Amino acid sequence: MTNVPKLEKLLVWGNKLSGNIPSSISNASMLKRIELQKNFFGPIPDTFGNLRHLERFQVNNNNLTTGSAIQEWSFLSSLANCRNLSLIAVAGNPLKGLLPTYIGNLSTSLQYFYAYNCELKGNIPTEIGNLSNMLLLSLDNNKLSGSIPSSIGLRNLQALDLSSNKLGGPISESICGLERLATMYLSSNKLHGPVLACLGDMISLRYLSLGSNRLSSAMPSTLWNLKDILVLDLSLNYLNNSLALDVGNLRSLANLNLSRNLLTGNISSTIGVF
């Protein structure tokens, strides 16, 4: 792409294109959007850092497997030069390897990061906390382990999906500082410890899923402060008290799943007001 100096958008998604992603794309210096998703492309070149105007980088649902695991993620280091970048989508590629620490060098303009179903393993790097304007972080359906870093308490975050990994340890209290968070999926991990009472202070929550973990505590009555929550899933844990009467405060609730815990007592009559 040496003769298209004014090209701003390259959209070829949803085809059956294959082979390597050509590094010559980086010669189109005015590119703002690259959308190559849903094809059969090979590795991601490390040259996209030359695209200083790049805003959206979408290569999800391809076949990005060629090369070593370390090389597979080196493209993130290159993309750190793209200071206007707001969206990165690499989900649905068997990239494997570790999420590198230099993810923290990406632009603070970054708002959306999709890396679900990439066969990622290892810890979530603490440097992810440098991405202060992140709105959505999706790392679900990987093999991530270790604990959820306290640095993930990004003040602008609206959606966090870490479900279906191998994360352990207690839920970090820093999560309770996410005042704008509307969606939090932490289900199908190995989290243990209590369900934090401070979750009841996260009044923006609409979808909260902590199911299929090893959480063991009384179910905090503060959860019934979430009057606008739509879905609450605490199933498949070791929660061990009866339903608080204030459960009737959840007037917007569409789905409540408390199955397979250690709850006792009677079902609250206030459920009938839903």
Score class of each variant (00 low, 15 high):
89 A>L: 02
88 I>E: 01
48 F>Y: 08
8 E>T: 14
226 L>V: 06
77 S>Q: 13
203 I>M: 05
35 E>Y: 10
229 I>P: 11
96 K>G: 12
274 F>M: 15
60 N>L: 00
174 S>I: 03
162 L>E: 01
249 N>H: 14
171 I>T: 05
92 G>D: 08
234 L>R: 10
17 L>M: 15
189 N>E: 01
238 Y>W: 08
139 L>W: 02
17 L>P: 02
212 S>V: 05
227 K>D: 03
137 L>T: 07
176 C>S: 15
234 L>D: 07
133 N>A: 09
2 T>Y: 06
184 M>F: 08
229 I>L: 12
147 S>V: 12
115 A>E: 02
129 G>L: 06
271 I>L: 15
42 G>Q: 12
204 S>T: 07
251 R>Q: 13
271 I>D: 00
168 G>F: 05
243 L>K: 02
89 A>V: 02
144 L>C: 08
214 R>V: 05
52 R>T: 14
139 L>R: 08
147 S>Y: 11
110 L>V: 09
182 A>E: 12
234 L>V: 08
54 L>S: 10
183 T>S: 09
170 P>Y: 10
104 G>C: 02
234 L>C: 11
259 S>K: 03
82 C>P: 06
259 S>R: 00
19 G>R: 02
62 N>F: 04
148 I>W: 02
188 S>V: 09
16 K>Y: 14
66 T>D: 15
131 L>H: 05
197 A>D: 04
218 A>K: 14
7 L>P: 06
135 L>W: 04
153 G>K: 04
269 S>F: 09
52 R>W: 00
263 L>D: 03
169 G>D: 09
104 G>Q: 09
221 S>N: 12
140 D>P: 00
125 P>H: 11
3 N>F: 09
235 S>N: 03
190 K>T: 12
253 L>Q: 10
100 P>A: 00
124 I>P: 03
211 G>W: 02
191 L>I: 14
260 R>Q: 11
13 W>V: 00
185 Y>N: 13
97 G>K: 06
261 N>P: 04
86 S>L: 03
239 L>K: 01
65 T>A: 07
242 S>H: 13
54 L>F: 07
102 Y>G: 02
169 G>W: 00
160 L>Y: 09
203 I>V: 12
90 V>F: 05
170 P>L: 06
13 W>Q: 15
259 S>Y: 05
227 K>R: 15
60 N>A: 04
151 S>Q: 12
58 Q>D: 15
95 L>Q: 06
35 E>R: 15
228 D>Q: 14
178 L>I: 13
219 M>I: 10
24 S>H: 06
35 E>P: 01
98 L>R: 14
26 S>Q: 06
77 S>G: 15
122 G>Y: 05
244 A>G: 14
16 K>N: 15
58 Q>W: 12
10 L>K: 05
8 E>N: 07
273 V>C: 10
73 W>F: 13
96 K>L: 03
112 Y>L: 15
211 G>H: 04
256 L>V: 11
54 L>H: 01
9 K>P: 04
165 N>C: 05
162 L>G: 07
238 Y>M: 14
15 N>W: 02
35 E>W: 02
145 S>N: 07
19 G>A: 05
176 C>L: 09
